[in-house]
Design a protein around this nucleic acid. Structure first.
Lengths: 256, 256
DNA sequence: ACAAAAGTGTTTTCGATACACCCATGA
DNA sequence: TCATGGGTGTATCGAAAACACTTTTGT
């Protein structure tokens, strides 16, 4: 749940190191096997899966905390990572949190312990290359990818948080490029189209999608890929990094 | 700065009542005299103007806190009020805060007092009817409307927060209706156009604007308004509330 | 040869934009 | 009657959508 303190230690004296009342949760998206995935973790002793999250050190920038949480769960740094909302319902978590100590080791925790306080959660969304991630498991924590369209019930309001992350992505799709952080170096257009379709939640026309995505001038055509299947081999493409990252800053525009 | 505690009391024992580390700031927009306005306040003894803000009671929903802050500054409730971002830089405020006690009454405040802690600020943006607001002044606090295009230097990172609020509004303009909370019951199209122009930061074509806004079907034509000026009298319009509020939920769409 | 998937082209429609023209009003 | 601002109509352009046709591949 955090790099320095064990869960138990956080219960007992998290307030020494962390900003009280504030936490961060990451919605980490990946793409594999033609599907969008979300990285979830679970404390082995508990029932529900949860978003990777953690607390903010007293002198730590919010984004740095989010990066730290991302690195703990995936080993990755410097990917697309963006704040997308705040979730602060009163008692959104308390009842569920209370059951944690029992499930863990029957430790008695006082009512006013750090983790039982009210937290305002800042949501961050991350896009990462699936194949670069080794979901980090140990004795206490499981970590796994789930299909975005088939998530289990999550702790607290985390299902809501994922939905919000998706909604924000959907809006950004119309003016920002996407894919560089989700796809391997070279990929067929169809993969990118599948990402768009998953985020938008609807099918897109192949011809129109190709025309549009190519018109942005962020893609470079590579070799054909003879991959198997009785059909025409697709060309592979890669992103032109400079143009891609410029578009991330300034928005997409047609290149003519 | 908050309804229950004086500034001094908040300094001394804010932690008894408020969630630590979290605060809310409201960017309150109004429209008058053909211009967008922002409501600012200033503690008389200090230099800079600041956004209306406050803290979150320990068992208070975030949005309720934002409504409370809005009501304190304007007397209004139930207007358009929306969370739009989080601002949490380390030490974004500390140095400026430190000078407050001196300016107020030379009270000695300990280094670890409530107000000198680090705060994560949640930004809310409100749209209100200018003429319904009586900016609330008392001995300690001034409260005034400022032209959006001519804001003074604000405390902390509040100028940045206003800019962000505007950016968010600009995006929403393309898929949500706006104006009901800014205009009187009946108004000429030109007023609405001016709001759009201010938020977008550019001139719009009158003919095209009228066609587009009418195509949404959210407006109802009323009487002509003979107001003065040597020119054709404009029609007045009012919003069709049901359609307007439905569009706020589900987005704007053409009515045919 | 055939099915499946990829690439490419055509047509139509719609919205955004620019701009023209006429109308109403008070000075 | 003239200047000013308001209402409405037209022409153009480009993007989006629907869809057809061709090409390439393994079986």
């Amino acid at each position: 749940m955090n790099p320095e303190l064990s869960l138990l230690e956080t219960f007992l004296h998290g307030e020494k190191y962390y900003l009280p009342s504030v936490a961060a949760n990451n919605v980490i998206f990946g793409f594999n096997d033609d599907q969008m995935k979300v990285l979830l973790l679970k404390i082995t002793a508990t029932e529900k899966w949860t978003l990777p999250g953690g607390f903010i050190l007293k002198d730590e920038e919010l984004i740095v905390a989010a990066e730290r949480i991302l690195k703990t769960a995936t080993g990755l740094e410097s990917v697309f990572l963006q704040q997308f909302g705040v979730f602060g319902g009163v008692d959104r978590a308390k009842e569920e949190m209370k059951t944690l100590p029992d499930q863990l080791k029957n430790v008695k925790i006082s009512e006013d312990s750090f983790l039982l306080q009210r937290f305002v959660v800042i949501g961050y969304l991350a896009l990462v290359k699936y194949h670069l991630v080794t979901p980090k498991c140990d004795e206490v924590t499981q970590c796994e990818w789930f299909d975005l369209n088939n998530l289990p019930p999550l702790t607290f309001d985390h299902n809501l948080i994922v939905e919000n992350a998706l909604k924000v992505l959907r809006f950004q799709l119309s003016y920002l490029p996407i894919g560089y952080n989700l796809l391997p170096e070279e990929f067929p257009l169809k993969s990118l189209q599948l990402i768009y379709e998953t985020i938008l939640g609807r099918k897109l026309d192949r011809g129109n999608f190709n025309k549009k995505i190519l018109s942005y001038g962020i893609l470079e055509k590579k070799e054909k890929f003879y991959g198997g299947g009785a059909h025409k081999a697709p060309y592979l493409y890669s992103f032109k990094k400079e143009i891609y990252f410029n578009a991330l800053e300034n928005g997409l525009s047609k290149d003519f």
